[in-house]
Amino acid sequence: MSYHLNHLKELESESIFIMREVAAQFERPVLMFSGGKDSILMVHLARKAFYPANIPFPLLHVDTGHNFPETIEYRDKLVEETGARLIVGSVQEAIDSGAIVEEKGYNASRNYLQTHVLLEELEKGKFDAALGGARRDEEKARAKERFFSHRDEFGQWDPKNQRPELWNLFNGKKNYGEHFRIFPISNWTELDVWMYLAMEGVELPSLYFAHERPVFAREGTLLADCEYIHKRPEEEAAVETRMVRCRTIGDMTCTGVWESEAKTIEDIIKEVSIARKTERGGRTDDKRSETAMEDRKKQGYF
């Protein structure tokens, strides 16, 4: 017997350690759940961390009202299976109440509006730690994140003044009203996530697998045709049905789909391992400027 973990088991162990640390150090943690593969992985790891007890914190879903219907279906099933408590923050309600104003125009997206609802929900639930499935390989600003990322009373991130993290000692101390964002899968890459989900046999939303869907192209990205996107006339004319799948799952207005024939998780792994574009390459929310993610994160975006 060799005393050696392969890299997936080592990553798993690190993530479980972080989750247990959160349960021990914070009074009211919450897991931010988007319905994407990374948050599915997070729920899976949380079940492992606290087995045989239930996950000792609720799931928080910020519903933009523009979700793929498959996402909501999957979410509700997962909640039923795990016995987890689900909190839903609604962007639609915030718009209806006049708290935030919907963007207009062809590129209108509710992506930015999520931040407001997220911060509201964190405050309402008095949550002092919000666990998220962000990974450092996703985006250049996320590459600078800590596992335990401090947020001031306005929920803001100060990337130039982050606490150093050494060994496996995590400092979750804070003043009243401040909170932490916690990123247990920081060190995983997209390929690690897929390999691990395959190894573990975790069930995934159908959106990740190749399916036929009406789509149209905008600025080099394929978008799913849906009522939430305001299409230009020429885009309307160009809608056609193609075989596609999602590499990330977000709001329908900003999640690009990719042409793919990948029907199984093994097909996806093959596809990802030879992919020449990043998974967020299809996210129009990241393309608004060179530092779009950093700017949003500073304001409290996940």
């Binding site: 590459a143 600078k144 990337p159 982050q162 530092t291």
Partner: peptide, 30 residues
């Protein structure tokens, strides 16, 4: 590729620890 923050790009320097990942068939590197 590694200087992810706005201030870093402006000044052409690295301010904060940036984590990067790559792998070869033998190892995953952090």
């Amino acid at each position: 590729l590694t200087d992810g923050l706005k201030a870093e790009r402006e000044q052409g320097i690295t301010i904060d620890v940036a984590y990067r990942y790559f792998s070869t068939p033998k190892r995953k590197f952090i």
